[in-house]
Simulated assay, not measured.
Amino acid sequence: MKKAVWIVLLALILGGSGTLISFQNTKSLEEEKREVHKQEAFTASEIQGINVDTSSADVQFIEGKSNQIQVTLSGYAWKWKQYSYQVEEMDGELKIQLEKNPGLGLSFGFIRGDDLKLLIEVPEQKLAFVKINTSSSEVSLSDLQVNHLIASTSSGDIEVSNLQMEEKLNIHSSSGDVTMTDIKGPNAVVDLSTSSGDIEGTGLLVHEMKADSSSGKVDVSHKRLAGNLTANTSSGDVTFSFEEEPPSFMLSYQSSSGDERIQLDGIHYERRAEHEVKGHKGDQKYQIVVETSSGDFTLY
């Protein structure tokens, strides 16, 4: 008797779930996927900085060809009425905000999804700052001149290329990767952090770089050593390389179980034991400091 009751209850649960999914599918089919296209333009000379805050759209900065900063939101959304979108200039700061208000009831991610993109076109001019805060969005910036760039995302990747810096570059991603190409800032400090994402870079020329990652690797190629380099990882490997071999630095590497592969000449070692290296070259003008738990270290 009890077995029969359980069978009936299970049938009711499965039937209810099937009805709910069927209803959601039918409702989704009844709703047309709305195309979104909104564009705003602002006089570039009046803008000193740009602040982007979104959880629902990928963000891309590119070099514009006019004397205006153009902001374009495009793509598709199922429930555009649930979005709040604002673009406004106030006291020299361009604020771009896109938020989606949570709807009532159940929603199935495999049934519906939005596809939105924010494109910001900036003419050839130097900005005081660019701030980007997202959740899972992909972030891409290229051909920018900026004093201070801050980019933060939870699971999205961050890609920066052909960037001219003056002061600071701060990038944080939880599980997303960070990729940098041709970053020029002889006086700039670069601060990078990820949890499980990789940090990769080529063609860097910066005054100082700090990289922190838990399980992701750090692999950065510099044009030349122009300041201090620091890397901390748990299980991620660390690789630093140089197009021009540095003539002067202090070197420190320490790990619990990682190995080192140092391929630079002229280093005088105070200590080169298992999982630990201390040495210097020249007058020790700059520092290269790497700490890992189980990650390997390669220097060339």
Results as ranks from 00 to 15, higher is better:
residue 233 T to N: 03
residue 164 Q to K: 13
residue 280 H to W: 11
residue 138 E to F: 15
residue 21 I to G: 02
residue 107 S to A: 10
residue 92 G to H: 11
residue 61 F to P: 01
residue 169 L to P: 03
residue 264 L to E: 04
residue 134 T to G: 09
residue 259 D to F: 01
residue 45 S to A: 08
residue 196 S to V: 10
residue 114 D to S: 04
residue 122 V to S: 06
residue 165 M to T: 02
residue 104 L to F: 13
residue 258 G to M: 06
residue 33 K to V: 14
residue 238 V to R: 03
residue 198 D to W: 11
residue 56 S to E: 15
residue 271 R to G: 10
residue 135 S to V: 10
residue 157 D to C: 05
residue 147 N to I: 00
residue 73 L to N: 00
residue 21 I to H: 09
residue 12 L to C: 14
residue 27 K to A: 15
residue 286 Y to Q: 14
residue 25 N to L: 15
residue 31 E to L: 05
residue 54 T to I: 11
residue 10 L to T: 10
residue 94 L to M: 07
residue 187 N to D: 09
residue 210 K to Y: 11
residue 208 E to V: 07
residue 125 Q to Y: 00
residue 53 D to H: 10
residue 94 L to Q: 01
residue 270 E to P: 02
residue 212 D to T: 15
residue 142 S to R: 09
residue 21 I to Y: 15
residue 107 S to I: 09
residue 48 Q to M: 04
residue 25 N to G: 07
residue 241 S to C: 11
residue 276 E to P: 01
residue 51 N to Q: 10
residue 239 T to L: 12
residue 99 E to F: 12
residue 193 S to D: 14
residue 133 N to I: 08
residue 79 K to T: 02
residue 101 N to H: 08
residue 125 Q to V: 14
residue 47 I to W: 00
residue 163 L to F: 05
residue 269 Y to W: 10
residue 75 G to E: 05
residue 159 E to V: 05
residue 297 F to V: 13
residue 69 I to S: 02
residue 215 S to I: 09
residue 293 S to F: 04
residue 142 S to Q: 13
residue 184 K to M: 11
residue 8 V to I: 15
residue 10 L to W: 09
residue 191 D to G: 02
residue 252 S to P: 02
residue 202 T to W: 00
residue 86 Q to S: 09
residue 183 I to V: 15
residue 194 T to I: 08
residue 41 A to S: 13
residue 104 L to K: 12
residue 14 L to F: 15
residue 266 G to R: 06
